[in-house]
Amino acid sequence: MQSGKMFALDVADTGMMDAGVYTWDMTNDLVYADSALAKLFGLRSEEAKCGLPLRAYLDRVHPDGRPHLTKTISDSVAEGCAQRSVYRELMQNGNFVSVVAFGRCFHDREGGAVLFSSYGGKWVTRPIRRRDGQGSSFRRHRR
Rank of each mutant, 00 (worst) to 15 (best):
R109H: 06
T70D: 10
F102W: 12
A56F: 08
V11G: 05
F138H: 13
R66P: 00
D75P: 01
G94T: 00
D29K: 12
T125H: 11
R104H: 13
R140D: 06
D34C: 10
I73E: 01
S35P: 05
S137W: 10
L90W: 05
T27P: 06
M1P: 15
T72M: 06
I73S: 03
E79Y: 10
W24L: 12
R126M: 11
G135I: 03
Q134A: 14
E89C: 14
R140L: 06
M16F: 01
S74L: 06
T23N: 13
T27I: 10
P63G: 00
D75M: 06
H107T: 06
Y57A: 01
W24G: 02
S74E: 05
F138W: 12
S74T: 10
I128A: 05
M16P: 04
M26Q: 09
L115K: 14
S35F: 05
W24M: 07
A38D: 09
A12Q: 12
G51W: 05
R130I: 05
V77I: 15
D13H: 11
G42R: 10
H141D: 09
Q2I: 08
E79P: 06
N28S: 11
D13N: 14
G121T: 09
V61F: 00
K49H: 12
L115H: 13
R143A: 12
S35C: 09
S76R: 03
D29M: 07
M1A: 15
W123K: 10
R131T: 11
R55Y: 13
M6Q: 13
M91D: 05
V99C: 03
C81E: 14
R140M: 08
G51T: 05
A101P: 00
G135S: 04
D132N: 14
Q134P: 09
G94C: 02
N28F: 10
K122S: 11
M1V: 14
S76C: 02
G133T: 02
V86Y: 03
D59N: 14
K122P: 09
R142D: 04
G112V: 07
K122M: 11
V114Y: 08
V77S: 03
A33I: 06
K39T: 15
H62P: 00
N95I: 10
G112R: 09
G120I: 04
G103P: 05
E110T: 12
K39E: 13
L37E: 14
F7P: 00
Y119H: 13
L9G: 11
F102Y: 13
A78T: 15
S45Y: 02
R143Y: 13
V61S: 01
P127Q: 01
G42Y: 03
M17R: 15
V77P: 01
D25T: 03
D29I: 08
G20N: 04
L30W: 02
A33C: 07
R109Y: 08
Y22H: 14
G112E: 07
G120M: 00
A78R: 15
R55T: 15
A56G: 08
G80A: 00
T14I: 15
S118G: 12
G20L: 02
V77F: 01
V21D: 06
T72R: 05
G111D: 03
R131H: 09
S85I: 04
V124A: 04
S85G: 11
R88M: 02
P127I: 02
L30M: 15
R140Y: 07
P53T: 14
V77G: 08
M16T: 12
